[in-house]
Amino acid sequence: MATETAPAPTETEAEHDDHHPEHLEHHFVSSEQQFDSAKLGMWVFLITEVLLFSGMFVAYAVFRQWNPEVFAAASGTLNQTMGALNTVVLLTSSLTVALSIHAIKQDKVKQCIYYLLGTLGLAGGFMVVKYFEYMAKFEHGVYPGGAFDPHGAHYEHLAEMAMAPQFFSIYFVMTGIHGVHVVIGMIVIGALAIMAWRGSFSSEWYTPVELTGLYWHLVDIVWIFLFPLLYLI
């Protein structure tokens, strides 16, 4: 009995197989479609992140409305200079990550790596400043929740304010979760720099770089809201 043979691939299919980029998954028609799909997925993820921080912002707004004098007094003990420095650092890191995307689009791989490393260094600087800021609070008994036991000339008046622990609980939770996001971003950016050094990215495929840039911009935007709410008003 004669066996059926599969039809030979058409010229179009053969050409498709020959020119199929390594980064292109087979269930996508083109790199553009794959990029649009990945970008949509990232935007959905970022929306969930916005919802996460929005809940904390709402909690802050409610408790501040109930205790405006206490929140203003507690806010006054925060180091505005360190907060402003970290704001400048993160804004600069947004610029460097944007420049890294611009560089890889032009096949300037070395520049992309330098900008990614610059972003990584700035993020590390942000965390170092935050570390010293936290340590200054802990040394004076300013902890979240029931461990709150302020002492020292700059903090002792907070012991008389019943809702002062609530402010610092919100402060540590919001800045702490933001700090976790910064650390996650640092890990990803470091990995991207290594991948770029190994030649993984080019003007034909730089999706991970651009998606990480979107994530990093969100991290920066959240801090832009945190800084004035916690440190200035």
Rank of each mutant, 00 (worst) to 15 (best):
T3M: 05
E4F: 15
T5D: 11
A6M: 13
P7R: 14
P7L: 13
P7Y: 04
A14T: 14
E22C: 02
E22K: 08
L24I: 01
E25C: 04
H26T: 15
H26W: 11
V29K: 06
S31I: 01
Q33E: 08
F35V: 00
D36M: 10
D36S: 05
S37T: 14
A38K: 03
K39T: 03
G41N: 07
G41M: 11
M42F: 02
V44N: 03
I47E: 11
I47M: 11
I47F: 15
E49P: 01
L52M: 11
L52A: 01
L52F: 11
S54M: 09
F57C: 06
Y60E: 01
Y60D: 00
Y60A: 04
A61F: 15
V62I: 15
V62Q: 03
F63W: 11
F63K: 08
F63Q: 14
W66P: 00
N67T: 05
E69K: 13
F71H: 07
A73G: 04
A74L: 00
S75C: 06
Q80P: 08
T81Y: 00
G83D: 07
A84T: 10
A84R: 01
A84K: 04
L85C: 09
N86D: 10
T87E: 06
V88C: 06
L90D: 11
L90K: 09
T92R: 08
S93P: 05
L95E: 02
V97M: 15
A98K: 08
L99T: 04
S100C: 03
H102D: 15
H102P: 05
A103E: 08
I104C: 03
I104W: 05
K105N: 13
K110P: 01
Q111L: 12
Q111D: 15
Q111W: 11
C112R: 00
C112V: 09
Y115A: 08
G118K: 13
G118I: 10
T119H: 04
L120P: 04
G121W: 09
L122I: 11
A123D: 09
A123F: 10
G125T: 14
K130G: 04
K130R: 12
F132A: 03
E133S: 02
M135Q: 15
Y143D: 00
G145K: 10
A147V: 03
F148S: 02
H151C: 07
H154K: 15
A159Y: 02
E160Q: 14
M161C: 02
A162M: 08
A164S: 11
S169R: 03
Y171I: 09
F172E: 02
V173G: 07
M174C: 11
M174Y: 06
T175S: 08
I177W: 03
H181N: 13
H181Q: 06
V182G: 01
V183L: 15
V183D: 12
V183Y: 12
I184V: 15
I187K: 07
G190H: 06
L192Y: 08
L192A: 08
A196Q: 02
W197T: 14
W197R: 13
G199K: 09
G199E: 10
S200G: 11
F201M: 13
S203Q: 09
P208F: 04
E210R: 02
L211H: 00
T212L: 10
T212I: 12
Y215R: 07
H217N: 04
H217C: 07
L218N: 01
I221D: 00
I221G: 01
I224Q: 05
L226K: 07
L226S: 05
Y231A: 10
I233P: 11
